[in-house]
Design a binder for these strands. Structure first.
Length: 615
RNA sequence: GACCCGGUAGCUCAGCUGGCAGAGCAACUGACUUUUAAUCAGUAGGUCGUGGGUUCGAGCCCCACCCGGGUCACCA
């Protein structure tokens, strides 16, 4: 599990799990595996003699009589039939067939025993008149608030004669359960943190206490009662009444947590380690891993902070098309789709750039957009086909100004969200301070090669690249060769924030020529933690030059480069009306978040990363 | 795409040179009224990714395939 050093979080919630109540749903084997029966079909019948007497007893006489086939759905009796909840919630999925005793073509479910027990408890609860899926629950505090209030009262000496704090109503998910016989300790977790619950038989009464045995870790419950501090020092709710809010029919894969007696640190033994399953079932990953929840809370705060920064700088947030008749603004392959009514091929955008610059032409002189872009390419640690891009364009600025703006923005976000300028990138500990290092792409490469890149012919460059086993050189011109060599030789070392500036013209068809060296463009990429996070130019505003650049791209495309750009006539028309000098920046928001939160892969900062179809 | 590693109980994993498929946790039964990885006693739980092959015998060896992770390479 990701264990990035996340700053400034409240508590380290660990995970605990524990066996739940003593009472239970009975002996599955006896029912499901009777001699000679093929298993599934028999599993849910209630027949005599049924050894599951404790469970049966809880039905309070509503238990279906025996030996009749349609008792596969005992909860269908009584008022349940007309309940808006109808039969089984969606989570049941393919198991309903099983449970109904029907033959089904569904593959046999892996969890049948565990799922069965929970379903039996659900029935037992309904038989006792306990509604397992509540409509609402009023909370007087969240878990952290209840603890804080108690501690405040304790400090102020305002506890009552029994050392109880005020009564609270808290609600959350059961994440731990320790049954001690006539008393039970449990932990309840909500978005704020966790709080211990204490259930005591002679407070709740015999019957209510018995019913607790039908609860499980993962259930949502609400409780009410005074707070107190246990002998071991933990602030705890002494439960006087409880309400089941939602029965969990599928146990969450909680791991175990222990507290190191030496350091007091919580050591977490994850019960949910399979990366793929964690991405597919992000709900369970989030439910079980508080630090994953924290990553996404911080991601959200980073994005808010970026937005606030740009708003304060006078930028206007805009929205431009995701579905485009012509894609452009980057070198990438698009997703293709079709609009039926217009009978027209559409592309999912690969960049926002060309639309945003049209807005500069129109006089909206500082604009930005935070959006999903789509590139039909492979997946990797730093590439997702669907990713979040922030682009902004500012008239009356050039790339020098934008480097300054980037520095300010990064420090603004760090101060506001992280509260520190210290950051960890893998094994590197860094302090981020402006100004960042600036290196010329060509001069840095020249230094790495030990010879002046400008003096090298295309053949020299190719020979160097081949000597260093740089892959995929087909059709690469000198610009691309320089870029490849740079990627090989210089890029991996760019851990601390570094502006790499002044790229070869061939690589940057939308950037202005360098004012001092026509072979280059005024462009920078900002690298952090070894990955490119920002990309920016002094934007090309000469429509005649722009057309020539597009034509060069078309030639590259015809030569087989399917990532080369196309001529966008409408964009050229816009430039012909006149675009003021403009600096523009694109930022990979996911990567930025990765860097700030020290997350090793882009999937760890995307809630639902793209995966191959399940089956 | 190429290379490396992996897929065994609900989860995390072990399984030697081919010889009866295992552990911990979770589940289930029982005990326990201030525990917190609760503890103690007991019970159940398996299509060893899929399909072929070799063998008296395959989780293990061979072939093919599926799925995942990592590394490399390109766009943020």
């Amino acid at each position: 599990m990701p264990t990035g050093a996340l700053p400034a979080q409240e508590s380290e919630h660990g995970h605990e799990d524990a066996p739940c109540g003593a009472l239970s749903a009975g002996n599955g084997r006896a029912r499901g595996r009777q001699e000679g029966t093929p298993g599934r079909d028999e599993r849910y019948r209630f027949r005599e003699p049924d050894p599951v007497l404790r469970l049966s007893a809880l039905y309070d006489g509503q238990r279906p009589s025996d030996g009749v086939e349609d008792h596969g759905r005992p909860w269908r009796h009584g008022r349940r039939t007309r309940s808006p909840h109808r039969s089984v919630p969606e989570a049941v999925g393919s198991h309903s067939g099983q449970l109904m005793g029907e033959t089904t073509t569904e593959p046999r479910e892996e969890l049948s025993q565990v799922l069965r027990h929970r379903r039996e408890k659900l029935e037992a609860l309904r038989a006792k008149g306990v509604e397992p899926f509540a409509y609402n629950f009023h909370r007087s505090a969240d878990a952290a608030g209840a603890v804080a209030t108690f501690e405040g009262a304790e400090k102020a000496g305002s506890l009552d004669e029994k050392d109880h704090g005020e009564r609270v109503e808290v609600g959350g998910r059961l994440v731990g359960w320790r049954d001690m016989g006539r008393s039970i300790f449990a932990h309840l977790e909500d978005a704020s943190g966790r709080i211990q619950l204490y259930f005591k038989k002679n407070i709740l009464g015999e019957d209510d206490f018995e019913t607790l045995a039908l609860l499980d870790v993962s259930d949502w419950i609400g409780v009410e009662g005074p707070t107190f501090r246990t002998r071991t020092g933990e602030v705890t709710v002494q439960v006087e009444s409880w309400t089941l809010l939602a029965k969990s029919l599928r146990p969450l894969p909680f791991g175990k947590a222990e507290t190191d007696p030496e350091t007091g640190e919580r050591i977490i033994h994850s019960g949910f380690a399979d990366q793929e399953t964690r991405y597919r079932q992000r709900y369970a990953d989030l439910a079980v891993h508080p630090d994953v929840r924290e990553v996404f809370r911080l991601r959200s705060r980073v994005i808010s902070s970026l937005r606030r920064f740009l708003d304060e700088e006078g930028f206007l947030e805009v929205e431009t098309p995701v579905l485009q008749p012509l894609y452009g603004g980057a070198s990438a392959k698009p997703f293709v789709t079709r609009h039926n009514a217009l009978d027209q091929t559409m592309y999912l955008r690969i960049a926002d750039e060309l639309y945003l610059k049209r807005l500069i032409v129109g006089g909206l002189d500082r604009v930005y957009e935070i959006s999903k872009d789509f590139r039909n390419e492979g997946l990797s640690r730093v590439h997702s086909p669907e990713f979040t891009m922030l682009e902004w364009y500012q008239a009356f600025s050039d790339y020098e100004d934008q480097m300054d703006l980037c520095e300010r923005m990064i420090l603004y976000v760090m101060d506001e969200v992280m509260g520190t300028r210290q950051v960890t990138f893998g094994s590197h500990q860094l302090t981020i301070e402006a100004p960042f290092r600036r290196i010329g792409l060509v001069s840095a490469l020249s230094e790495a090669l030990g010879r002046d890149v400008h003096e090298m012919s295309e053949d020299d460059l190719r020979a160097e690249a081949e000597r260093r086993n740089v892959a995929d050189l087909d059709g690469a011109g000198p610009g691309k060769l320089i870029d490849k060599l740079f990627g090989e030789l210089v890029e991996p070392g760019l851990i601390e924030p570094t502006f790499v500036i002044d790229h070869p013209k061939e690589l940057s068809p939308l950037a202005k020529p360098h004012r001092e060296d026509p072979r280059l463009t005024e462009r920078f990429e900002l690298y952090m933690g070894g990955a490119e996070v920002f990309n920016a130019f002094s934007e090309l505003n000469d429509p005649i030059d722009q057309r020539e650049r597009f034509e060069t791209q078309v030639a590259l495309r015809e030569a087989g480069d399917d990532e080369a750009q196309q001529i966008d006539e409408d964009y050229i028309r816009a430039l012909e009306y006149g675009m003021p000098p403009t600096g523009g920046v694109g930022m990979g928001v996911d990567r930025f978040v990765m860097m700030l939160l020290d997350q090793p892969t882009i999937r760890d900062v995307i809630l639902f990363p793209m995966l191959r179809n399940e089956d």
